[in-house]
Nucleic acid binder design. Structure first.
Length: 527
RNA sequence: GUGGCCGUAGCUCAAUGGCAGAGCACUGGAUUGUGGCUCCAGUGGUUGGGGGUUCGAAUCCCCUCGGUCACCCCA
């Protein structure tokens, strides 16, 4: 038989009661805030068809998907986030009336290299708001996320807001769609962090043909070297040119293949120019970050220069103004027009919340607007929507970083000890009576010497211990020991029983004694 | 995914090529129905795992698993 212990799966955690309670307390605080804004819980599966997350999530998520085939040969995955599942649920059964305001919490999975604050299984808690469009909805969702942190007592966080729609307008204006639009969207984040040259290098590797065509023809002077020729004519021209050069140069490729490639390449001029122009814009846009007023002003200038519709920027401006109304001032909020986020379903406002005390994994929350996702997941209609999710473990780390406590409320604990074996039955009755009176009664089941039980109760921090033995059983009483003072009182069991069914006077006194002045506010804090 | 550091008792750590140890914790006793202090005794280790070098490896080398830090990316 194998003796070695079975190891925990990499990137997962065991949370013993102390930590599990803290996590649960944070999650409940977040959910209470969501509820206070009118959101209600929705539960969705941890297990989903892999396709759900392959459709619109983007390479980043897809490459980290915990996927597998089940016994029926279905391609499944452990969900990497909550939004897609909630939207899937909505598409399957749309609510009769909009808006839909739901929150969900639970484990999500990403196959990454683990480190502090980054786990393969972690807990997300977030909201989705389906229905409303416009700046007020954007602002309220961001404010909700901020307010949730405020209510936990956090102060050292910062919100960064951007808007994917700005690049979207530009690409649409340049007629860029499909693969290139996606590639360029992805480049925004890269440009922001590593500069435009890094983006160009990557794109050149990805599609040297198209890109070099743009470079060689010159970005300022686009040339469609096939003029207005139709497809058939163009191919004929290219084929005849090749014939003049001699077909030997063609190598193993068939003539048709080569002709098609060349036609495509020669036609690449305008497209490549569009890419160039988009990149120039993206490079400039990615550099726009900082205080809202400043960024908005520079953003307007950039859009005018490139002749791009400034509707997204105006909406962003409105959201910032509304956030200010809500009390979320510029001290906490900054704009970053290069912010694009890894999930590709975002279409409009996007935001992140970071905490200064967390080092490399500083992001507490991420979200944004995903107006196309509902259609992308199969609905025949399109519905605007937005949402965000917190990383609950990271919120916990942030609380630690700010030396904040999480308050866990619970009933008082009482330790019930039979003084000797013959009185175990009576001790059981006593414990049950205490439980009926809304106390947490821990029965000593170890059958160890009384002093060992008391030593244990002392170390464990029980405020009150109930000892019952021969005398107590005969008299129908319990002996209550205050562990802090060593004082003991004898209380008739009948009073406790009466107290359980709404009592006053003596019963109230007795229960107050056991509770040590009512419910204990246990402060749980890891140091 | 790339690079660095770490892994010895439940916990914190010592032992740098020569008998695997200490403190705390845990269990029992001194004290038969009364804890915290004190004293005595005890349990607990394939030194993360596998292979190699060596008369001899916790120690040196290789592989691997796990953790962690910085990148990358994200919650």
């Amino acid at each position: 038989m194998e003796r070695r212990p079975v190891e925990r799966v990499r990137g997962t955690q065991d949370s013993w009661p102390h930590d599990a309670q803290r996590l649960d307390a944070v999650r409940r605080h977040l959910e209470a805030t969501f509820a206070s804004f009118g959101y209600r819980r929705i539960d969705v599966p941890v297990l989903e068809p892999a396709e759900l997350h392959l459709r619109k999530s983007g390479l980043e998520i897809v490459s980290k998907l915990y996927g597998f085939d089940d016994l029926g040969g279905r391609r499944l995955c452990l969900r990497p986030e909550l939004t897609a599942s909630v939207v899937r649920a909505y598409v399957a059964q749309p609510a009769p009336r909009l808006p839909v305001k739901v929150f969900s919490s639970g484990p999500v999975f990403r196959y990454e290299r683990p480190s502090r604050g980054r786990y393969r299984q972690f807990t997300q808690s977030g909201v989705e708001l389906i229905g409303p469009e416009g700046a007020l909805a954007d602002a309220e969702v961001v404010f909700l996320a901020m307010h949730a942190l405020e209510r936990l007592g956090l102060r050292d966080y910062r919100v960064t807001i951007g808007h994917i729609g700005i690049v979207g307008e530009l690409l649409a204006g340049l007629g860029l769609t499909g693969r290139w639009a996606t590639l360029l969207m992805e480049s925004l984040e890269e440009a922001r962090r590593h500069g435009l040259e890094a983006v160009k290098t990557r794109l050149r590797e990805l599609d040297p043909e198209l890109f070099d065509a743009g470079e060689s023809t010159g970005a300022t002077e686009p040339v469609d070297r096939l003029g207005g020729l139709g497809e058939t004519e163009a191919r004929a021209v290219v084929a005849s040119l090749l014939a003049e050069l001699g077909a030997d140069a063609l190598g193993r490729r068939s003539l048709d293949e080569v002709v098609e490639r060349m036609v495509r390449k020669l036609r690449a001029g305008p497209n490549a120019r569009a890419v160039e122009r988009a990149l120039a814009f993206i490079g400039r846009l990615g550099a726009l970050h900082g205080a809202p007023g400043d960024v908005l002003r520079r953003g307007r200038e950039l859009l005018r220069e490139f002749d791009v519709d400034d509707a997204p920027l105006r909406q962003l401006e409105e959201s910032v103004a509304l956030l200010e109304c809500m009390g979320a001032g510029a001290a906490r909020v900054q704009l970053d027009l290069g912010l694009s986020r890894g999930l590709q379903y975002y279409t409009g406002m996007v935001f992140e919340i970071d905490h200064a005390g967390l080092g490399a994994e500083s992001q507490l929350c991420g979200g944004g607007r995903y107006d196309d996702l509902i259609r992308a997941l199969g609905a025949r209609y399109s519905t605007p929507a937005l949402g965000f999710a917190f990383g609950v473990e990271r919120v916990l780390l942030a609380l630690d970083a700010e030396a904040r406590d999480v308050v866990v409320e619970r009933a008082a604990d009482v330790f019930v000890v039979p003084a000797s074996a013959p009185h175990e039955a009576y001790a059981i009755r006593v414990a049950q009576a205490l439980r009926h009176a809304a106390l947490c009664a821990h029965l000593e089941v170890g059958r160890r010497p009384l002093r060992a039980s008391l030593a244990y109760a002392g170390r464990e921090g029980f405020a009150q211990v109930v000892v019952v033995g021969e005398t107590e059983e005969r008299e129908g009483t319990i002996r209550v020991r205050d562990m802090a003072t060593g004082e003991e009182h004898t209380v008739p069991l009948a009073i406790i029983v009466a107290g359980a069914s709404g009592a006053s006077g003596a019963a109230g006194d007795a229960l107050g004694l056991l509770r040590g002045n009512g419910a204990i506010h246990e402060t749980v804090h890891e140091r």
